[in-house]
Design a protein around this nucleic acid. Structure first.
Length: 212
DNA sequence: GACCAGATTGTCT
DNA sequence: GACAATCTGGTCA
């Protein structure tokens, strides 16, 4: 077992975020998700990463949001309760992972764009066929591959399934005060409409984000 | 570094 | 039939 994985377990008592953590405006949730940990418990072991980049997609006045034109078979999970996974297929070969947010009936979500690998790094390297730690999860398609996720995770509960989100305090020994991070707000990436909206958030100076 | 083309297929119009 | 919340590998500077 690698040091990262050992540390992750040794720090002990990791706390899954509360139900109320997800019950806040989507833009605020996108910001608050920075620094939390996305953890996937697989049959081969635990894979986890610290969220360092997110984007908010809003129901109203956001043409880039999948739910902008109403509910379809693909996006119906976005209209459900916050704290579930919205995983969709794109560009014929990749999946993207989102955290459903907002109130029920209004499709909103937070796209997770990049992670800092924390545990199960050997598994991530295997899943991605890449050994550069900074490049394992520095993009929405990449982190889905690294964590071993697929369309089957669409709709799963992020507090009660094998895929969960742990709070920041769980790992404070590793990320103690000296490594406190500064967050940055910017415009989103990879979309043709709604580019001007400042709905992207990332950890300043992190080498693990998708684009500087 | 920046820019560009190609891969590939589900979803929506 | 067009497009897409991406990634990789190529070219050029």
């Amino acid at each position: 077992m690698r040091a990262g994985a050992a540390n992750f377990i040794a720090f002990g008592f990791p706390m899954i975020v509360t139900r109320s953590f997800f019950n806040r405006p989507t833009t605020e949730l996108a910001h608050q998700l920075l620094g939390t940990f996305l953890v996937h418990d697989t049959p081969h072991g635990r894979i986890a990463g610290r969220i360092v980049e997110t984007e908010a997609y809003l129901f109203r006045d956001d043409p880039a949001c999948h739910a902008h034109r109403g509910m379809t078979k693909r996006n119906e999970v976005m209209f459900g309760s916050a704290g579930h996974a919205y995983v969709y297929f794109v560009y014929g070969m990749y999946y993207c992972f989102n955290v459903v947010s907002g109130v029920e009936g209004e499709g909103e979500a937070v796209l997770i764009r990049a992670l800092e690998p924390v545990a199960g790094i050997d598994l991530m390297e295997k899943n991605r066929d890449n050994k550069n730690r900074e490049q394992l999860c520095n993009g929405p398609g990449k982190l889905v591959l690294a964590l071993g996720l697929n369309g089957g995770h669409n709709g799963c509960c992020l507090r009660k399934s094998s895929l969960r989100i742990f709070d920041r305090q769980s790992f404070r020994r590793e990320y103690r005060e000296g490594r406190e991070f500064v967050t940055v707000k910017a415009t989103r990436i990879g979309i043709s409409q709604g580019k001007e909206l400042p709905l992207r958030f990332y950890v300043k100076d992190s080498p693990f984000i998708s684009k500087k």
